[in-house]
């Protein structure tokens, strides 16, 4: 079963509230490329591709260009992917599970939890690059050592709780299960 955030989250965080994420994630990706220069090699020619990442349970989406030290992330509204070669759409918790490798992208796709359109080869290149990178939250925010381990434990633990909460909220009530 897919785990979606409750509907009120869309209203709590409209597009303009997500806007600061763009510069922060851009800085984070570029810093990551400086620390681990080989990380983006698997993307090959697709490093310059524009990926429209649309978390269906958030009010905004992202346009990501994973081009190493020239990488960029822009927060946009749901119609902002017109010039992108690839669209990847799904619940935010499932998209984050792809980042940390805890769920399999093909299985999520086969079961219609995530949807893709556009250049399939670019999707595969991105998926395989992310898989091999074995990114942790600490990698993305530039922490190492004990602070990194604490950040990983806190953020991954928080995501796990959020997934359980979302799954419990999506489960049918006992009366519905009996009918």
């Amino acid at each position: 079963m897919e785990a979606r955030l409750p509907a009120f989250v869309r209203h709590l965080f409209p597009t303009f509230a997500g806007a600061p994420l763009g510069p922060a994630l851009t800085w984070s990706l570029r810093a990551l490329a400086r620390r681990r220069p080989g990380l983006f090699d698997r993307l090959g020619d697709f490093a310059g591709e524009r990926y429209f990442i649309d978390p269906v349970d958030l009010a905004f989406a992202f346009v990501v260009v994973p081009d190493g030290e020239r990488a960029s992330v822009r927060v946009t509204d749901k119609q902002g992917g017109g010039d992108c070669g690839v669209t990847i759409r799904g619940p935010i918790l499932s998209l984050l599970a792809l980042l940390d490798g805890s769920q399999d992208g093909d299985a999520l796709f086969f079961n219609r939890v995530i949807a893709i359109s556009g250049r399939t080869e670019a999707v595969l290149a991105l998926r395989n690059a992310i898989e091999d990178a074995e990114l942790t939250p600490a990698d993305l925010i530039g922490l190492s050592g004990t602070p990194g381990r604490l950040a990983d434990a806190g953020i991954l633990g928080g995501l796990d709780v959020a997934r359980r909460f979302a799954l419990a909220a999506a489960a049918p009530a006992p009366e519905e299960r009996r009918s």
Partner: peptide
Amino acid sequence: PEAVSYDEDDKGMAARLSGFTIDRYAPGEP
């Protein structure tokens, strides 16, 4: 993969290979 495309419309999704429609899936169908 460069020959593969997945196209969604109101009736569901069409999976294509080099433009040939290989299969169609209803919304929610694996």
